[in-house]
Simulated assay, not measured.
Amino acid sequence: MAIKVTKASNLKPHPADDKLGFGKIFTDHMFNMDYAEGKGWFDPRIEPYAALSCDPAMLVFHYGQAIFEGLKAYRTPKGNVQLFRPQANFARFNRSASMLCIPNFDEAEALDHLRQLISVEKDWVPSSPGTSLYIRPTIIATDNYLGVAASQTYRFFTILSPVGAYYAEGFAPIKILVTTEHVRASRQGIGEAKTAANYAASLLAGHKAAKAGYTQVLWLDAVERKYVEEVGSMNIFFVIDGEVVTPELNGSILPGITRDSVLTMARHWGLPVSERHISIEEIFEANENGKLEECFGTGTAAVISPVGELRYDERVITIRNNEVGPLSQKLYDAITGIQFGEKEDPFGWIVPVD
């Protein structure tokens, strides 16, 4: 589909790279596209960033048909702009769509539209170390109707935000609270979809963790309440007696793009890797036996987040003396090196914008 471009008449001032924060500043333009049953996706367009005009009866407000993605654009030392594994994000976006009865879109066209949007906004891609342009594609149901049913119309929009570090700590170990009061999702539900409902379900536990002085929540399975699943905004990894271990994808865990990148790299380096059930008790026992070598989270926003402390009920363990582990550092350096064009990309993950 041909894309229509309407340029903004008034451009916003660009903030200094050291004033970015995360997700609070938005660029001059956005992408919009609509869907109607019987017509399909139509009218892709780049236009000035603006508020959406919404009817109070819009289905997304009442029944939660909302999905989104998160990826980034990076500026290389030569000044070029590039994307990291966008095809994987759009493939996951379509899987989320299917789980919420949202019509699929053409992934190749979506990538082309994104590249055009970023090309228009390329001056917004920051250049300081650790900064990037965060990309948030979203689809929402737009029928105005209060009956419980899948919408027949949708809006696909993408907004862009120049960002700095996700955590105030930067690349430093964070503290995680294992929640025993709440569950995020169960198998055969929508836990593996990147949908607004899953994040709403995480807020109360996250709020309690923050009040207790912890950065994130670690979720356990919804049935037996003993197997590790994921962290609030990340997948979780452990290094136990030389083996890289992460919970297997079981239908209630988000299949993270960074998670997959870490698994691919670890195997490429010849490290023993295991995707399996892992109980919280096994983690604490491994620590008691001196076999818990590292713990880290993975996600688009922070890439690699070393974990320095885990609290489970009244038990608290400190990992690696609250210092960054060697594998965490190696993975962070390797992935960010590829993302920013400072290292070779042996996996074909990079897509240039210009």
Rank of each mutant, 00 (worst) to 15 (best):
34 D>E: 13
53 S>Q: 14
292 L>D: 00
168 A>W: 04
180 T>V: 05
285 E>I: 15
257 I>L: 09
278 I>E: 11
213 G>V: 01
139 I>Q: 00
100 L>H: 05
133 L>N: 04
231 V>F: 12
328 S>L: 05
97 A>I: 06
286 A>Y: 05
91 A>F: 06
141 A>G: 15
269 W>M: 03
291 K>Y: 07
44 P>Y: 03
77 P>F: 08
288 E>L: 07
277 H>L: 13
314 E>M: 12
22 F>E: 07
154 Y>V: 04
4 K>N: 12
194 K>E: 01
199 Y>L: 02
117 L>I: 14
268 H>A: 13
231 V>Q: 10
25 I>V: 11
168 A>R: 11
250 N>R: 09
218 L>N: 09
50 A>M: 06
308 G>Q: 05
36 A>T: 03
128 S>W: 02
269 W>G: 10
40 G>F: 02
256 G>N: 09
270 G>E: 09
122 K>A: 13
349 W>L: 11
230 E>V: 01
91 A>S: 13
15 P>E: 00
321 N>D: 15
305 S>F: 01
99 M>K: 15
71 L>Q: 08
140 I>K: 06
148 V>N: 10
354 D>P: 03
42 F>M: 06
185 A>E: 10
34 D>Y: 10
19 K>W: 01
66 A>N: 14
46 I>F: 01
36 A>R: 07
320 R>L: 08
123 D>M: 05
187 R>W: 11
202 S>A: 12
36 A>F: 00
238 F>H: 10
94 N>R: 09
196 A>K: 09
54 C>Y: 12
313 D>N: 14
324 V>M: 05
259 R>V: 00
284 F>M: 07
310 L>Q: 08
144 N>I: 01
16 A>D: 15
12 K>Y: 06
318 T>A: 11
114 L>D: 04
223 V>P: 12
328 S>Q: 10
309 E>W: 04
165 A>D: 15
61 F>M: 12
18 D>C: 00
52 L>G: 04
257 I>E: 09
349 W>M: 12
60 V>M: 13
211 K>F: 09
166 Y>E: 06
247 P>M: 05
188 Q>N: 15
3 I>W: 03
185 A>F: 00
323 E>P: 03
295 C>E: 06
227 Y>W: 13
249 L>M: 11
160 L>G: 08
89 N>Q: 02
311 R>A: 12
326 P>Y: 00
96 S>D: 06
215 T>D: 13
93 F>K: 02
325 G>I: 02
108 A>P: 12
176 I>W: 04
63 Y>L: 11
111 L>P: 02
209 A>I: 03
134 Y>V: 13
320 R>A: 14
328 S>D: 04
162 P>T: 06
311 R>K: 15
35 Y>I: 04
189 G>D: 13
314 E>Y: 10
102 I>F: 03
264 T>M: 14
279 S>C: 08
24 K>A: 04
14 H>L: 15
200 A>S: 09
288 E>F: 08
144 N>Y: 02
95 R>E: 15
84 F>A: 07
83 L>E: 03
350 I>R: 10
59 L>M: 14
293 E>F: 09
258 T>L: 11
77 P>D: 00
308 G>M: 05
296 F>L: 06
66 A>I: 15
163 V>W: 01
53 S>R: 14
203 L>N: 07
153 T>Y: 00
149 A>V: 14
25 I>D: 08
80 N>H: 15
51 A>D: 14
142 T>M: 14
262 V>H: 07
74 Y>R: 06
272 P>G: 02
298 T>S: 15
